[in-house]
Nucleic acid binder design. Structure first.
Lengths: 201, 201
DNA sequence: ACCTAACCGGACCGCTCGGTCAACTTAGGT
DNA sequence: ACCTAAGTTGACCGAGCGGTCCGGTTAGGT
């Protein structure tokens, strides 16, 4: 559904459906490795298509970026909503943070957007992110009520820490691909009630 | 000294000295606001000079970036080495992290370089960063011996957390310029021995 | 006062990028 | 079989970038 330009549009012709699938697949791969800086020509070549075809399906490069990132946010929302029913609330929250950080580790485009790229302001993405935020808020509420995290932590804190933990580990990832687990653990320790000291506003 | 191209070179002519000062000052201002993405033309205009003059003083744009960032690292090293003699070892460490994060908050170019820009590999910067690392290692050692931070924390951890804490707060900074203090406090809580649970390798 | 080497400036070069377009191909209803 | 609307393509455009170059300017020793 999200890959269709509009609900009321004529159905795509068979060759256009095929091109679109090739394009999306290539964009996923190229954006994952090269981030949002990858050029449209690069993606077109990876898909075996002409550059003009890419712009027929997505009028602006940003629309393509949004389409790809949107898919990833969808996945993360689904994962998060499932984790709401995890046996251990603390493990549910940790599972979310793990998922969010791994997404960044394996996908350069996702980090770019998570760390402030202008595309974040796109209405479609804003909506999806809002939904993610409310799911995370619920996840944190549950962990808080179970006494697994300190009282002064919000869902927004956890969302922000997602990029923070990744960026902490980022310079070392080429040498130590698992190093992010260290900083996730360290951050998680800071979220424990045992560590709590008053935070500034 | 660091602004001279070479020790054995002829002294600069009076107008060249003046141009260089204007250039450095403009570069500081522009890089602070626009980051390393600022174009050379932009800096030349801010300095009231021609683009060619900039390239006369710095053969490559990166050389100019390095010169500016180098100054900032120098300042940070000086601050850090002073903090080694702080009354309270924990406050010394916290002072370093505060200084490092504030540098990023007030200077976009410093974040760019801290968060992985290619310029970091420049030999001059590598040397300065190495010196910073050893000062930080000493600072952490001292805090650790005083029981102010957990045993499994290294100087490298603290260096990496500098960019991590900033990047955590970054998306909120336009609305809440002081929000980084919240995440610094949260991170610092995670560094306490009271919070310690075993970290992954 | 004059000479020259140092300095300055901005037109220019080559490159890459996102985006456009007109000529060509093709799907698919009749 | 044929017609047309939909789809495809790569040459092309203009903007912006780092970097070059050469004609004009100026500092400063003699």
């Amino acid at each position: 559904m999200s890959t269709e330009p509009a609900d009321n549009a004529r159905p795509l012709r068979a060759d256009a459906v095929r091109s679109r699938a090739l394009l999306m697949s290539a964009a996923r791969d190229v954006f994952a490795v090269r981030g949002t800086e990858a050029s449209v020509a690069e993606i077109a070549q990876a898909a075996g298509l002409g550059k003009g075809t890419v712009f027929r399906h997505f009028a602006h490069k940003d629309d393509l970026v949004v389409a790809i990132v949107d898919e990833m946010v969808d996945d993360l929302v689904a994962t998060t909503e499932q984790l709401l029913h995890a046996d251990d609330p603390a493990e549910g929250l940790r599972g979310f943070m793990t998922a969010g950080i791994e997404l960044q580790v394996h996908n350069q485009a996702f980090c770019d957007v998570a760390a402030g790229a202008a595309v974040r302001q796109h209405p479609v993405l804003r909506g999806k992110i809002a939904r993610l935020e409310s799911a995370v808020e619920a996840l944190v509420d549950r962990a808080r009520r179970a006494g697994a995290v300190r009282d002064d932590i919000t869902g927004q804190d956890v969302m922000l820490l997602l990029t923070g933990v990744y960026q902490t580990a980022a310079p070392m990832l080429p040498e130590s691909p698992e190093i992010w687990k260290r900083y996730l653990a360290l951050t998680f320790d800071g979220l424990q009630p045992a560590a709590a000291r008053p935070l500034p506003a």
